[in-house]
């Protein structure tokens, strides 16, 4: 019994960390190129909605994934236009986009399905099982290689830290930022697609439940590195898995409080990042003495 509960939590951790990982990867790329990415929530919601609709229409989840990616590109074009072209405040732009999508999604479901914000549920054979997980780890691996070992990775890093260098070397910082915001939108909306066609069967209102912000917290907590991102996403995934496990195990705890666990943990994690980071070297010196 003990063992099976542990395995259950382990598997659901892997599954639940997938959207976080994808959204976080999108956020990481964007942040690395010097743009604060707060619109992850918008990408997740848009991806989730489009994937659910297209899967419902075509009957094949892979079309849903492609459509979600396309919607991410569209949104990224809007975000890039504001942030890169009009040089508007990225934090505010991100939040405004989140509100925009939050309003648009119920409108679309109402227009298409005449429902109050959810799409018709998909049959079980149209739900992706393991492919999003594999896709997420594959993309993380590819990003790691590109980031560490290619010119593109170098360009993105310089773009975030010293854009002057790019100008001197004859590259356009704006172009690098455009590229990374498009890739960011594409990957983050794939994360949204996994929410609706892999973790659940269809889009429902507030399906992302703040995961966009939690994903950004994962990026920060992972110290803006791909591996750090992976570990912090797994950590948050496990928090969510434990939350769901507690809900299903029938303990007499108020649902209201259990649902707050991921938010509270995110808060503490973001708050305690620097104290812990500054404590680690001291711990190391204590241990090696």
């Amino acid at each position: 019994m003990e063992n099976s509960a542990f395995l259950l939590i382990l598997f659901s951790t892997l599954r639940l960390s997938t959207p976080l990982l994808l959204a976080g990867l999108g956020g990481l790329i964007c942040e690395k190129s010097g743009i604060v990415q707060l619109a992850l929530e918008a990408y997740l919601l848009a991806g989730a909605l489009v994937a659910a609709i297209v899967t419902y229409w075509t009957g094949h989840p892979f079309f849903g994934l492609f459509a979600a990616a396309f919607s991410g590109l569209l949104l990224a074009a809007v975000q890039g236009f504001f942030i890169i072209r009009l040089k508007s405040e990225p934090v505010m732009t991100g939040i405004a986009m989140n509100i925009l999508i939050l309003g648009l999604c119920p409108l679309i479901t109402k227009a298409l399905f005449d429902s109050t914000g959810s799409t018709p549920s998909l049959p079980a054979e149209q739900i992706l099982r393991h492919s999003p997980l594999i896709l997420a780890y594959f993309l993380l691996f590819v990003f790691y290689i590109i980031y560490r070992h290619t010119l593109w990775g170098l360009l993105i890093q310089f773009c975030g830290q010293k854009p002057e260098v790019l100008v001197v070397k004859g590259f356009s910082p704006a172009l690098v930022q455009w590229a990374s915001i498009f890739i960011s939108g594409l990957i983050a909306s794939l994360g949204g697609a996994t929410l609706s066609i892999s973790l659940s069967s269809g889009y429902s209102p507030m399906i992302s439940a703040g995961r966009g912000y939690i994903a950004l917290a994962c990026v920060i907590l992972g110290n803006w590195t791909p591996l750090g991102l992976l570990f912090s996403c797994l950590f948050f995934g496990s928090m969510e898995a434990i939350q769901i496990f507690i809900q299903s195990s029938g303990w007499q705890v108020s649902l209201n409080w259990i649902q707050l666990i991921p938010y509270a943990v995110t808060l503490f994690a973001v708050a305690l990042r620097r104290p812990i980071l500054s404590f680690l070297p001291r711990l190391q010196s204590l241990l090696t003495r």
């Binding site: 707060l38 934090v91 703040g210 912000y213 950004l216 917290a217 920060i220 707050l260 938010y263 509270a264 995110t266 808060l267 973001v270 708050a271 305690l272 990042r273 620097r274 104290p275």
Partner: peptide
């Protein structure tokens, strides 16, 4: 402690 205020306040909203 240098916690990102946007994320902290967002979580506090929830």
């Amino acid at each position: 402690w240098g916690g990102h205020e946007v994320i902290v306040t967002m979580m506090l909203n929830f």
